[in-house]
Structure formats: C-alpha cells, structure tokens
C-alpha cells in the first residue's frame, strides 16, 4: 500500500470507521457509567448546591494551594501538554477544515508558526511526563500497560503531525497518512482506555462538586 492509498483510506473508510467506533464507545461508556445511578441524598443540604458541580468542573483545572510546589512537573507538564495539544488539534487550519467537514462548524485558526510552537511544547511536555512516570515512585506504582498505551496513542499523532508539517521524512504523503491513521487509532481506543477521562472527568468533577457543595464546601 502506497502512502497515497493509505491516505485515501485514512481520509475515507478509515475515518468513518474510527469516528464510528469512537462515538459508539463514548456513548456506550457514558451510559455504562451513568446508568449505575446513585441514591438520592436524603441529608438536607447546608445550602442550595445548584451549580456547585458545574463550578468544580472549572475550578478543578487549577492547582489547589500548595500543590503546584509539591508536584511542579505533573502540573506544568500537564498544563503545557493539554494546552499545546488543544491548540494543535483545534487551531491548526487543516484540522479546523476536518471539524468543518465533520461537524459543519468553523472557527478562525492560528498562524502555523504558533501552532508549531504549541506542538513542540506539547511534545516536550509529553516527553517530560514520560520521564516523570519512569522516575517517580508513586507514578511507577500506579502505572500499568494502559498508561504506556495511552501515552503512545497521544504521542504518535503529535510527532507524526509535526513530522508531516516539517517534511521530516522523504515521503510526506505517507507521513501524513500515518499521522491520520494514528489519530484514528487514538479515536478507536479513546473510549476504552484511560483517555476516556476526556469525557468522564466532567462527570467525576461534577459529582465531586455536587457532593461537597451540599455540605457547603467549594471543592
């Protein structure tokens, strides 16, 4: 299979398959989680907790007092990676065209050099987080095969996208095709790996904020 054939497959059937499996999996897992339900809390809330769950969805993105100093690599690496990745994914013009094709929505992109810097930052952050995972005893204890998989699933699209943009390899078309296929692999495995946190964390944060909010604690 040549680069162009792979590219054509990736832009056509591959994409359909990947997006389909991703959506299937995300919906399945959301229902799987939410349908377990929870018992209504009979303890009368200290205060009206409406909105506390939503509030925590946002506030939990910030480090609680003192934590940044305790775990700078995890926080800063996490921020740089997530923000860099988000810029690359959502503000690179060709990507916006993809979203336009998928969702019919469009928004302004950023100049390529800015996207480039964001991608490099994300790649470096991801490498730093990998080193952190290899070195830190807590992370080592927690790490399982799923963590390496999730790391690779995230890293490969970044590095292939970067390589394609910069023509680091002779065969641009093949690099681009591999980039798209790697993203498709990411989509396929996202609902079934720890990458699912991109969806479930909103539920988790909401529950956390709601549970605390009823007690009068802004979590």
């Amino acid at each position: 299979m040549s680069g162009l054939e792979l590219l054509t497959w990736a832009r056509g059937p591959g994409l359909v398959l990947a997006v389909g499996i991703c959506i299937f999996g995300v919906i399945l897992r959301l229902i799987e989680i939410l349908a377990l339900g929870r018992q209504a809390d009979l303890a009368s809330p200290r205060q009206n907790s409406t909105g506390s769950g939503w509030r925590t969805i946002f506030t939990r993105s910030l480090p609680p007092p003192g934590m940044l100093r305790r775990a700078p690599l995890t926080y800063l690496g996490g921020y740089v990676f997530h923000i860099g990745m988000a810029i690359a994914v959502f503000f690179f013009v060709p990507h916006i065209e993809l979203f336009r094709g998928l969702l019919g929505l469009r928004w302004p992109g950023l100049p390529n050099p800015l996207v480039d810097i964001a991608s490099i930052a994300a790649i470096i952050a991801l490498l730093a987080l990998l080193v952190g995972r290899l070195v830190d005893p807590v992370k080592r204890l927690l790490t399982n095969a799923g963590d390496w998989l999730a790391w690779a699933l995230t890293f490969v699209p970044l590095i292939t996208g970067y390589s394609a943009y910069h023509h680091l390899f002779e065969n641009y078309t093949l690099t681009l095709a591999v980039h798209i296929v790697s993203v498709e692999l990411l989509l396929v495995l996202l609902p079934f790996s720890k990458l699912f946190h991109v969806f479930s964390l909103f539920i988790a944060r909401w529950y956390n904020g709601e549970i605390s909010g009823r007690k009068g604690v802004a979590s």
Partner: peptide, 22 residues
C-alpha cells in the same frame, strides 16, 4: 457500593499521582 460516581471516578483516573502529594 459501586454506583455512577464511583464508576466515573475510576474511569477518570489518569494515574497522575497527585493524590499522593495531598
């Protein structure tokens, strides 16, 4: 005891280890 919050919590853990620091 496993309910929707517990499932959402386990599904969300990214093994970052920050809970240890707290």
């Amino acid at each position: 005891v496993i309910d929707a919050p517990v499932a959402a919590f386990f599904a969300s853990c990214v093994h970052c280890g920050l809970c240890a620091e707290s």
